[in-house]
C-alpha cells in the first residue's frame, strides 16, 4: 500500500514536471513568436500583477502627455475598459484605476469614436507557434474595446497556451454555433505595409499589443 502510493507519487511528480517543462517550452516559443509579430510579452505574475502592469502603461502614457484623441464629452483624462469576470472582484479593480483619476468605461463604447486609451481583456487561447491570442467577444462593448483601444493588454493564463492552430476548431465550433458570435485570432498590433512596404504599426486597431502571461 505504502509502496504503491510512493510509486504513484513519483509518477505524479514526473507528470507534473513534464507538464511544467512543456509549459515552459510553450512560453518560450510564444514569447519569441509574438515579439516577432510586434507584441510586447511580459510575465506579471497573477491578475493583480497584470492589472498593475496595465495601470502603469496608462500612467506612463499620461506622463508622456499621450492620450487617445477626441473623447466623448471633451474630458481629456484617460479612459480604459476592463473586461473582468465577477470572480475577479471588478469593483476593487476599477477603483485601482479610478483612484488615479483614470476613467473606466463599462459600456457604451460605441460613443467612443475617438478611441480609448487602454483595453484590458482576457482571451480564450494562446497559440505558441504563431504568437497569437484568440479573443471571443460576445458583447459589443468588449468587441469594440479591442478595436478602439490605443493599447490592448491581453491577459493570457499560461494554462491556456496551445502549441499550434489545431487547438482552434473545437473553440470555434462552440462559439460559431451562436448567432452574433465574433472571434478574432490576433497576432501583434494592427499593422500595414501598404506604403512603400514599410511596416508601420497601428493603422486602424491598437497601436500596441501587450500580452500578459499570467500564472493563473
Amino acid at each position: 500500500m505504502e509502496e504503491r502510493r510512493g510509486v504513484a507519487e513519483e509518477r505524479g511528480g514526473g507528470v507534473e514536471e513534464r507538464r511544467s517543462e512543456k509549459t515552459r517550452e510553450l512560453v518560450r516559443l510564444f514569447k519569441s513568436r509574438a515579439r516577432e509579430a510586434g507584441a510586447v510579452v511580459v510575465e506579471p505574475g497573477k491578475l493583480d500583477g497584470a492589472l498593475a502592469y496595465a495601470l502603469d502603461l496608462v500612467l506612463a502614457r499620461e506622463a508622456a502627455g499621450v492620450f487617445a484623441e477626441a473623447k466623448e464629452g471633451g474630458d481629456p483624462s484617460s479612459l480604459v475598459f476592463l473586461d473582468l469576470k465577477p470572480e475577479d472582484e471588478p469593483e476593487r479593480r476599477r477603483e485601482m484605476f479610478a483612484s488615479k483619476g483614470i476613467r473606466v468605461a463599462e459600456e457604451g463604447l460605441r460613443k467612443c469614436a475617438g478611441g480609448i486609451d487602454l483595453a484590458f481583456t482576457g482571451c480564450a487561447l494562446g497559440i505558441a507557434e504563431s504568437g497569437s491570442v484568440l479573443i471571443e467577444t460576445r458583447t459589443e462593448d468588449l468587441r469594440l474595446a479591442t478595436m478602439l483601444a490605443d493599447l490592448h493588454a491581453v491577459r493570457l493564463p499560461k494554462s491556456l497556451l496551445a502549441r499550434d492552430l489545431s487547438a482552434l476548431p473545437p473553440r470555434l465550433r462552440r462559439e460559431l454555433f451562436h448567432s452574433g458570435s465574433f472571434v478574432s485570432l490576433v497576432t501583434g498590433p494592427s499593422r500595414t505595409a501598404d506604403v512603400e512596404r514599410v511596416l508601420t504599426l497601428g493603422v486602424h486597431g491598437p497601436l500596441e499589443l501587450h500580452v500578459l502571461l499570467t500564472e493563473e
Binding site: A37, E175, L176
Partner: peptide, 18 residues
C-alpha cells in the same frame, strides 16, 4: 507567419445597446 487579424463571425451581430 500569419495574418494580424483572422476573424470569424456568425450571424447578425446583436443590436447596439443604445
Amino acid at each position: 507567419r500569419i495574418n494580424g487579424y483572422v476573424t470569424w463571425t456568425a450571424g447578425a451581430l446583436p443590436a447596439a445597446p443604445a
